[in-house]
C-alpha cells in the first residue's frame, strides 16, 4: 500500500503578514499591500507542499478570515444591511481562534456564483489540486438563525432541511471546482460533529446531506473529523458516502478501530497542530507502521490532526516537511 501525505485546512499567515494585518486594522497599512503579501505567501506555501512531496496540494486558504467566511459571504448568511464580516465573533471550540457566526435567516439559496471567490488552483499541478470546504453539518450547526429555538436548541425539522440546502450549495461549488479549476480532491472539514451532542440524533440527516454534497463528483472526497473522538460514530462513519475519513489521532480512541475493522481509506491526523514540537519523520513513520499493522485500513494518508493554522508559519512548514518525509520513509 502506498501511504500518502497532505494537509487538510487553513495554513498560518507568517508573522510578517500578521503584523501587516494588525497595522491594516489600525489604519497604518493598505489592503492592497496586505493582499500582495498574502498572495506571495500563498505561492511560497504551494511551492513548499510541492517540493516536500505531498500527494495533494491546497492553496493554504490564506485569504480566508475563518473557515466559513467566504461561504457565509457568498450565501448571504448575515443580517440585512450588514455583511458576514460583522457577524458575532464566536470561539471555535477546542482552539483559541474565532469565527464570525453565520446567520441563517431564510432558506439557503444557491447564489449561482462561486462560493470561493479567490483561489490559486491555477498554480498547482493539475493532478494534485485539493480544495477544502466546510461540511454541511458544520456550516449549519455553527450558524445561528431560523433553525434554533429561542433557548438555543435546534428546531429539528428546519435544521434537517437546512442541512440539505447547504449540501446542495456546497455540491454546486464542488462541481464548479472540478470543472473550472480541475480540482481532483475535495475535502469537507467537520470540526463539530465529534463534540456536538446533537450529532447522533441527526446522523441519518448528516449522511443524506453528505450524499447530496458529493453527488456527481468524480474527485476524491473526504470528511475530516476533528475536535473530539470520532470513534463514537464507529462503525457508522464507514458508511458515509465519501471515499476517505480523516480523524484526529490525539482525541480519537483508535483502539475501537483495531482488528481490521476500519474498512475505508483512513486519513490519520498524527501531526499535532496544537503543539509546537516538530514530530520526527521517523516517529511518524513508525506510528503509521503500527496503524497499518493494528488497524489495517483500506488505504492510509498521514495528515495533521487539525488545520495547521494553529501554529506559527515557520513551525507549520517544518511539520509539512516532517509529514511528507514520514510518508516517504513508510513507503
Amino acid at each position: 500500500m502506498q501511504v500518502q501525505a497532505y494537509i487538510n485546512g487553513i495554513l498560518p499567515r507568517s508573522d510578517f503578514a500578521l503584523e501587516t494585518g494588525s497595522a491594516l486594522l489600525k489604519g497604518r497599512e493598505t489592503k492592497e499591500n496586505f493582499e500582495r503579501i498574502l498572495e506571495k505567501e500563498t505561492q511560497n506555501l504551494i511551492s513548499i507542499q510541492e517540493t516536500s512531496g505531498l500527494n495533494y496540494i491546497t492553496d493554504g486558504q490564506l485569504f480566508w478570515h475563518d473557515f466559513l467566511r467566504p461561504i457565509a459571504q457568498a450565501l448571504s448568511l448575515h443580517s440585512e444591511n450588514s455583511n458576514a464580516d460583522e457577524n458575532p465573533v464566536t470561539r471555535q471550540i477546542y482552539t483559541n481562534t474565532f469565527y464570525r457566526k453565520p446567520l441563517i435567516l431564510q432558506k439557503i439559496k444557491n447564489p449561482k456564483k462561486p462560493l470561493i471567490s479567490k483561489d490559486f488552483f491555477d498554480i498547482i499541478p493539475k493532478n494534485k489540486r485539493k480544495a477544502i470546504l466546510p461540511s454541511p453539518f458544520s456550516l449549519v450547526y455553527l450558524s445561528d438563525g431560523m433553525h434554533r429555538n429561542e433557548n438555543g436548541t435546534l428546531n429539528e425539522d428546519v435544521f434537517a432541511e437546512l442541512l440539505v440546502d447547504a449540501a446542495l450549495a456546497l455540491n454546486e461549488e464542488a462541481k464548479r471546482l472540478e470543472k473550472d479549476s480541475d480540482v481532483s480532491f475535495i475535502q469537507f472539514n467537520e470540526p463539530c460533529m465529534c463534540y456536538a451532542n446533537e450529532a447522533e440524533n441527526f446522523f441519518d440527516d448528516i449522511n443524506n446531506a453528505l450524499e447530496a454534497a458529493v453527488n456527481g463528483l468524480k474527485a476524491i472526497t473526504s470528511l475530516h473529523l476533528y475536535n473530539g473522538d470520532a470513534s463514537k460514530f464507529f462503525p457508522q462513519i464507514l458508511k458515509f458516502p465519501v471515499k476517505r475519513i480523516g480523524i484526529d489521532a490525539y482525541s480519537t480512541d483508535l483502539s475501537k478501530f483495531a482488528n481490521n475493522s476500519f474498512k475505508k481509506f483512513l486519513e490519520l491526523g498524527i501531526v499535532n497542530s496544537k503543539n509546537s514540537l516538530i514530530e520526527e519523520p521517523e516517529a511518524i513513520a513508525e506510528y503509521g507502521k503500527q496503524v497499518l499493522k493494528k488497524i489495517n485500513p483500506e488505504g492510509l494518508a498521514l495528515v495533521p490532526n487539525r488545520p495547521l493554522e494553529l501554529v506559527p508559519q515557520h513551525i507549520a512548514i517544518e511539520k509539512i516537511k516532517s509529514l511528507a518525509k514520514g510518508a516517504e520513509l513508510l513507503n
Binding site: 498560518p12 499567515r13 508573522d15 500578521l18 503584523e19 494585518g21 494588525s22 491594516l24 486594522l25 496586505f34 478570515h65 475563518d66 464580516d85 465573533v89 483559541n96 481562534t97 474565532f98 469565527y99 464570525r100 509546537s276 493554522e309 494553529l310 501554529v311 506559527p312 508559519q313 515557520h314 513551525i315
Partner: peptide, 10 residues
C-alpha cells in the same frame, strides 16, 4: 514561538 491568528486579522 511566534505569532498566530486569533480571528480576522487579530
Amino acid at each position: 514561538k511566534g505569532l498566530v491568528r486569533s480571528f480576522d486579522v487579530m
